[in-house]
Nucleic acid binder design. Sequence first.
DNA 1: TCCACGATGTCTACGCTGTCCACATGAACC
DNA 2: GGTTCATGTGGACAGCGTAGACATCGTGGA
Lengths: 205, 205
Amino acid sequence: MDAARHSYHHGDLRRALLEAGIALAREGGPEAVVLREATRRAGVVPNAAYRHFASRDALLQAVRAAALAALAVAMEKELARARKQPDVARASLRAIGIAYLRFADREPGLFRTAFSVTGDPETAGDPETAGRSGMNPFQLLGAALDQMVAAGALPAAQRPGAEYLAWSAVHGLAMLALEGPLRRMTRNQIQEIGRRVVAMVDKGL
Amino acid sequence: MDAARHSYHHGDLRRALLEAGIALAREGGPEAVVLREATRRAGVVPNAAYRHFASRDALLQAVRAAALAALAVAMEKELARARKQPDVARASLRAIGIAYLRFADREPGLFRTAFSVTGDPETAGDPETAGRSGMNPFQLLGAALDQMVAAGALPAAQRPGAEYLAWSAVHGLAMLALEGPLRRMTRNQIQEIGRRVVAMVDKGL
DNA sequence: TCCACGATGTCTACGCTGTCCACATGAACC
DNA sequence: GGTTCATGTGGACAGCGTAGACATCGTGGA
């Protein structure tokens, strides 16, 4: 990205800004996604950003979508491993939960960015939030639950809305671990609680 | 609070700033807690705030503590109602969950403020976060779970760490409803999901 | 009674932010 | 080869958090 520098036109500023934004989110979460800093890192004057994003919030939403896509990819990787196991359906649901918690642990900045909302994002169906499979994290969870029903591991009557229950439990834990009363716990303690939460969902659904 | 105005000294500026901060948090969540605006509402110059709060973040933390205390009070009210029911222990746990979700619904700004962390708050044991009973929301949940064990409704072996599981589920739902994919659902839909989440916890614990 | 002192509020100023407007540049197309 | 239009620049503004020096005032010791 330095080759094109020293020419008046950047070449691919939108991508450069987005990547700078992602890097900022990684380092410091959503509030660290600062328009001026992104332009600085892209080697460009602040206002240049407005040719590609309507506002700081528009940039943040783009970063947010990228963060969701990264989560989807992480889930897909974990799912691939689950496919080699007996009781694939259950293993897949567990894989989703584990991937979610692991992502929150390893990429706290991105995770917080993915789920922090200011204003009205309307991310439903945004293709930018999808992983390689074309599904976003929420859709991946839904698919895993469908598998459970197909495999007879979940009564069909319990299926509707089940993603909300599962998501709630795992998301809540992630938030508590990240910025709630669980913040000071060791990684192992949190993993243990994670296992219990996933088990609770499995049993309580 | 206008009587004391027109005198050089405000009289109770700390309280005035805190209350302005709470009002701001109510209206727009944590990011709306703006130091200058708080001083404006208190009828005072921006820097006056620094006699009472070391920084904007210190003010925000004070507001945060107040929000947690408000949640504790809401829980206590719901608990009082639960005490009149048969199976008090179970009713209490449900009451905690319901109060939590209702608070998130009715006071979204305060709720988001209570659980948004920037930096390192160290709220553990802060008496400012407690309700009338002297317990903060987390402690109230713990007490309800202890009751469950005492009543034989929860195996003692499951007790350690159970608050994290319960909290995770309800907190996650609240966040999803507030700023996640459930944002566009009707209040009734979310209440229904809330019932199911609480049931899942009860069953899955 | 007076006066010094410490606490509290004010004034001025700095660098940071997001954003608006007018202008410069240059790639692409007729 | 000249025009057009997307893209980057420059300068400006208001609002933010915050620092340092100064003003005001209630209070306690002489």
